[in-house]
Structures are given as C-alpha cells and as structure tokens.
Amino acid sequence: MGLDPHLVQIAYLANVNGSDIGALLTPVGTLATLIWMYILKKHSINISWGKYLRVTFLIIPFGLIVSLISLYFWTTWLLK
C-alpha cells in the first residue's frame, strides 16, 4: 500500500486500544466480565448491569485518555 511503516504501527496500536476499550462498555462485551459477574453473584454479591454501566462510563474515559497519551509518548519517543 505504500504507507509509512511508522504510521501503520501507530494505526495498529490505536486499533487494538479501541477494540479493548470498546468491549468493556457492556457486560456482554467480554467473557471475563460475564464470568466475574457470575462469580460475584454466586458469592451473594449482586452488581446490577446499571451499576456496572455507571462505573464503566466513569472509568473508561480516564483509561482512554491515559492510553492515548501513553500511545503518543511511546510512538514519539521510542519508535523514532
């Protein structure tokens, strides 16, 4: 395709980042979340889907900002 290898690597890493964060938005997005919720329920710790979504919508923007800043510094300092 004739793209700069550095640009392709940045696009790849950003895609992985987006895929990881996108799956966390709902409890059915990842198998690990479903297993975690099942284990909590089995031990009489009830977490509703609404509470899960409220927490994820508070935490995900922070995680996204940190990961994008880290990606920026990693690609500008380490890959050049």
Results as ranks from 00 to 15, higher is better:
78 L>M: 12
7 L>W: 14
42 K>V: 12
22 G>R: 04
55 V>K: 07
30 T>S: 15
50 G>M: 07
12 Y>A: 03
65 I>E: 03
56 T>H: 13
59 I>C: 01
3 L>Q: 06
6 H>T: 04
70 S>Y: 11
51 K>E: 12
69 I>F: 12
15 N>S: 13
79 L>Y: 15
4 D>P: 08
12 Y>F: 11
6 H>E: 06
52 Y>H: 02
37 M>S: 10
68 L>D: 04
64 L>M: 10
45 I>K: 02
45 I>W: 07
65 I>G: 05
8 V>Q: 06
7 L>D: 14
26 T>S: 03
79 L>I: 13
10 I>C: 10
56 T>Q: 15
79 L>A: 08
24 L>S: 02
63 G>M: 02
79 L>S: 11
52 Y>E: 00
76 T>P: 00
62 F>K: 04
29 G>N: 11
42 K>N: 07
55 V>E: 00
45 I>C: 05
50 G>P: 01
3 L>H: 09
7 L>N: 07
10 I>D: 02
3 L>Y: 12
23 A>G: 11
66 V>P: 00
22 G>D: 02
69 I>D: 08
32 A>E: 14
70 S>P: 00
5 P>L: 09
22 G>K: 01
36 W>Y: 15
29 G>R: 03
74 W>K: 09
63 G>W: 09
29 G>Q: 08
77 W>I: 13
17 N>G: 00
65 I>H: 09
74 W>I: 13
48 S>P: 08
73 F>P: 00
57 F>E: 00
64 L>K: 01
54 R>G: 06
34 L>F: 08
25 L>F: 04
64 L>I: 06
49 W>H: 12
20 D>T: 08
40 L>R: 06
9 Q>Y: 15
28 V>W: 15
6 H>M: 05
67 S>M: 07
41 K>C: 06
25 L>M: 04
3 L>D: 12
62 F>G: 00
27 P>S: 11
59 I>T: 00
63 G>D: 01
38 Y>N: 09
49 W>C: 02
72 Y>H: 09
77 W>K: 09
64 L>G: 05
3 L>R: 11
10 I>E: 07
15 N>V: 04
51 K>P: 00
33 T>I: 15
69 I>N: 04
12 Y>L: 08
8 V>D: 06
52 Y>A: 01
8 V>I: 14
76 T>D: 02
69 I>S: 05
35 I>P: 00
73 F>T: 03
58 L>D: 00
2 G>R: 07
78 L>D: 05
51 K>V: 14
35 I>N: 00
56 T>C: 14
68 L>A: 03
7 L>F: 14
61 P>Q: 03
2 G>Y: 07
73 F>R: 06
60 I>G: 01
71 L>E: 06
78 L>T: 11
31 L>E: 10
60 I>W: 04
44 S>A: 14
56 T>N: 13
70 S>G: 07
49 W>V: 10
55 V>N: 05
66 V>N: 04
23 A>D: 11
43 H>T: 11
31 L>Y: 12
28 V>A: 15
7 L>I: 13
19 S>Q: 14
12 Y>D: 03
24 L>Y: 12
64 L>N: 02
5 P>C: 05
72 Y>C: 02
63 G>V: 07
39 I>L: 14
51 K>T: 06
28 V>Y: 15
66 V>Q: 09
20 D>E: 08
57 F>L: 10
26 T>W: 06
3 L>I: 10
75 T>C: 03
44 S>P: 02
75 T>P: 02
55 V>M: 12
35 I>Q: 01
32 A>L: 15
20 D>W: 15
75 T>E: 02
